[in-house]
Design a protein around this nucleic acid. Structure first.
Length: 578
DNA sequence: GCCGTTTTCGGCCCGACTGTTTTCAGTCG
């Protein structure tokens, strides 16, 4: 049984206990045990003794060991016998938690969605103490709505949040606002959107929002916050939290989370006999200190600033107490090495793309249009590619503060061969190789293709290594560990494709890439000028993975990069005299 | 159930909002 399955089983135990009405700390203990596993970078086989992990004690360790050995757990089996499994699903209904579900089960014999619906329709639910007419109606309503996905993918949520941001900007009573929650931490999936808003007049802002937004339902509305469900295809839930000038920084920190990070902060405060909340830090004498920035709050705890993406409740506070975190920062990105022009499937000309990159303050960029086999994207023939190189040189001559490199994004064909011969590739500054076809091949076929690409002396980078599309497509059967080893052996870099649709490689793998000593390029794969802005998302993902600037090719100066590109690759086979 | 430089018991993070209640429990984040 792998780690993911074990975590799922631990969470299931927690849900059962919640319905049983167990002590909430006991329930949390099972969740925390799962979290401890999730936060450990090792695989289950590499962890020799799970009880050594913080948050896993005797009982949870036993459950984990059982699951590892036999795939079953006595604790879980006992719970499954005792409690109908259909009740677990009911926890997802709004307004229902363990206690209320337990009551419905014990007093009305509710065991699943259908029996709950029947109980509501017979008006039995409103008779229970703690329930009433309104709760019954609300349960019935949510039962009859079709299920919306529990988690929505980042690209979709970015779109929605960008629209919301425009509306917030137009409301005069909004002094400033920021996204918060999972979106600000750049999670790949999230269940809702959070915004923190500074205003003197929350009620007015709520009114304006209700006027401007397509509302499906107002879930809650008060002085401090408003929660709405949008009338969009996925019924996105949005929280707006209102802050004053004084509480804004604390509010933002609190609602950016993660929940686990907040728990760590509160513990730290508690050690000093203080309390931290979304309103500031309360001292022993009851006075509250407020802060103007998140940095100031961390400083108050003797910590350096922790970027949102690193706030996952692991050991980030320990690190931050030792000094500044050695993480990459957006301002260190000096160029973008993967973009397309109208020569293949891009929206803008070479000159327009180059100017836009230069306007972003970059020192260089690399044009990498598609190769000849990718017909749908108007891939370039060898002749076109070499002609394009001349065009690039002409444009490049206009700049004295910016370098436009000539590159290509070359297909790795289904049979493992590359789309251009070496005598073409050797004329380019930078060759990217990637897979765009035959996604359903076996892992060994995919890896054969990857190996051929890595072993070519001119291929410097493997782009979007897994081929996934967030929320849409899983990608092909690449063995990432093996790919990292190949990259290491051949001196090939791996891409962090920063496009909001990809984020490929994911944070999960990037740490391993860095640990192996393999270089990373953070590229936007821009097909238009607007897409260049996704560099932020790429850097955020790198931060989540703990990537240092030195690991990233495009933090280097143009001169450093040039000299790197001119070095011979190792472990490659130069096709010469056969 | 987990944890401990206040260590084997008694804590465990804190506040908003709702619906049910006449002062608060449950849910949620």
């Amino acid at each position: 049984m792998d780690k993911k399955q074990i975590i799922k089983h631990l969470d299931t135990i927690a849900l059962y206990l919640e319905i049983k009405g167990e002590n909430t700390f006991k329930v949390a203990a099972y969740h925390r045990a799962g979290l401890a596993l999730e936060n450990d970078p090792r695989s289950m086989d590499e962890i020799e003794d799970v009880s050594k992990l913080k948050g896993i004690g005797k009982s949870t360790a036993m459950v984990i060991d059982e699951l590892m050995k036999s795939g079953r757990s006595l604790v879980l089996q006992a719970l499954e016998k005792e409690i109908p499994s259909g009740l677990l699903d009911l926890l997802r209904l709004p307004g229902l938690g363990g206690k209320k579900i337990g009551k419905l089960y014990r007093e009305l014999g509710v065991v699943d969605r259908n029996s709950l619906r029947a109980a509501c329709e017979q008006k039995k639910v409103r008779a229970l103490s703690g329930f009433g007419e309104k709760s019954e109606e609300r349960i019935l309503q949510s039962l009859n709505e079709q299920k919306r996905p529990a988690q929505l993918a980042l690209p979709y949520m970015l779109d929605v949040s960008e629209q919301l941001a425009q509306i917030l900007q137009s409301i005069k009573a909004v002094a400033r606002f920021s996204k918060a929650g999972s979106l600000r931490r750049t999670k790949e999936k999230m269940k809702d959107l959070d915004f923190v808003i500074e205003t003197d007049d929350p009620e007015f802002v709520s009114e304006q929002l209700l006027k401007e937004l397509p509302i499906h339902e107002v879930v809650g509305k008060g002085e401090a916050k408003m929660t709405v469900i949008l009338d969009d295809p996925n019924h996105v839930s949005v929280d707006f939290r209102y802050a004053t000038k004084q509480t804004y920084a604390s509010m933002l920190l609190h609602f950016t989370g993660s929940k686990e990070h907040n728990v760590l902060l509160r513990r730290l405060a508690k050690e000093r006999n203080e309390k931290i909340s979304e309103y500031g830090i309360e001292c022993e004498d009851g006075s509250v200190r407020t802060f103007t920035t998140e940095s100031a709050i961390y400083r108050d705890f003797g910590c350096s600033f922790i970027p949102p993406q690193a706030r996952e409740g692991k050991d980030e506070l320990d690190w931050a107490q030792k000094g500044p975190l050695p993480l990459i920062h957006l301002s260190e990105i000096k160029g973008d090495l993967h973009m397309h022009s109208t020569w293949s499937d891009g929206a803008h000309t070479i000159a327009e793309m180059a100017e836009a990159m230069r306007a972003k303050g970059y020192a260089y960029a690399c044009l990498t249009d598609h190769s000849r086999s990718l017909r749908v994207a108007h891939g370039l023939s060898s002749e076109q590619l070499l002609r394009q190189r001349e065009e690039i040189e002409k444009i490049n001559a206009r700049f004295d503060d910016f370098t436009l490199f000539a590159g290509v994004e070359m297909d790795i064909l289904p049979d493992g061969s590359l789309d251009y011969p070496d005598d073409v590739l050797c004329q380019l500054d930078f060759v990217i190789a990637s897979i765009h076809s035959s996604f359903s091949q076996s892992q060994s076929q995919i890896m054969k293709r990857m190996e051929n690409a890595c072993r070519n002396p001119y291929v410097r980078l493997i782009a979007h290594p897994t081929g996934r599309l967030l929320g849409k497509r899983r990608g092909y059967a690449v063995d990432v560990e093996r790919l990292i080893a190949l990259a290491k052996e051949t001196g090939t870099a791996l891409e962090l494709n920063a496009s909001r649709f990809r984020l490929d490689l994911s944070a999960k793998w990037l740490g391993k890439v860095q640990d192996a000593g393999v270089k990373i390029a953070i590229d936007t794969d821009s097909h238009s000028m607007e897409m260049m802005n996704d560099m932020t998302l790429g850097v955020d993902t790198a931060i989540r993975a703990g990537i240092r600037p030195q690991t990233v090719l495009n933090t280097w100066s143009a001169a450093q990069l040039k000299s790197f590109l001119q070095q011979q690759k190792s472990g490659t086979t130069v096709a010469t005299d056969q």
